[in-house]
C-alpha cells in the first residue's frame, strides 16, 4: 500500500484514534463504573427491604413515605434511588409516593430515626412489621 495514498492516510488517522481510545477506555471505564458506592453496585436494589416482600405479596399498590420527599419525585436523586430500590425489591407491589396515605398499607422508609411516628398517628395507621427504627410497614387501623 502506498503510504501517501488516500486510504493509507485514512487508516493511519483511524489507527491513531483507536490507540488513543483504548488508552482513554482504561481510565474512563473503571473510573465511571467504580464511582458508585459498593452498596449500590453489587447488592440487589432495595436489598434492605427484602424481608417485607412476604407481607406485601398479595398487595397490588401500597403507599411509600420518606422524610426526604419534598413534593417533586425527580428532583431529589436520593429519594428516587431509595424509592426505585424499594420498588424493585417489592415488585409486583407498586409503590405510590405521591398519594401515600390513600392505601391500606404504607411503607415508611426514613432517613431520620422514628420520623414515621407523627405521620403514622395522624393518618390512622399501625405498625405491622418494623425492620428497624427507620423502616416500618404499617396498616390502616380498622
Amino acid at each position: 500500500m502506498n503510504i501517501t495514498s488516500r486510504d493509507a492516510l485514512i487508516t493511519i488517522v483511524v489507527a491513531v484514534l483507536i490507540v488513543n481510545n483504548f488508552i482513554v477506555q482504561t481510565i474512563f471505564i473503571p473510573k465511571i463504573t467504580l464511582s458508585w458506592p459498593i452498596e449500590f453496585r453489587i447488592l440487589p436494589p432495595g436489598y434492605r427491604l427484602q424481608p417485607l416482600r412476604d407481607f406485601l405479596r398479595a398487595v397490588p399498590i401500597a403507599g411509600y413515605y420518606t422524610d426526604s420527599y419534598q413534593g417533586n419525585y425527580w428532583e431529589n436523586p436520593k429519594t428516587t434511588l431509595y424509592l426505585q430500590g424499594a420498588q424493585y425489591a417489592l415488585s409486583p407491589t407498586l409503590l405510590d409516593i405521591e398519594h401515600c396515605f390513600k392505601y391500606d398499607y404504607v411503607l415508611f422508609d426514613c432517613h431520620q430515626p422514628e420520623c414515621f411516628v407523627l405521620p403514622m398517628k395522624k393518618n390512622g395507621y399501625q405498625i405491622i412489621y418494623a425492620l428497624n427504627d427507620r423502616i416500618v410497614l404499617a396498616h390502616r387501623k380498622q
Binding site: 471505564i29 463504573t33 453496585r41 453489587i42 440487589p44 436494589p45
Partner: peptide, 20 residues
Amino acid sequence: IFIYLNKPWGDWDAWSLWNF
C-alpha cells in the same frame, strides 16, 4: 465482563426502569 462483575444489576435505569 469487568462492568458485569462490578455492576451486576446494570446502571441506574437498567434496574429501575427496564429490568424492573
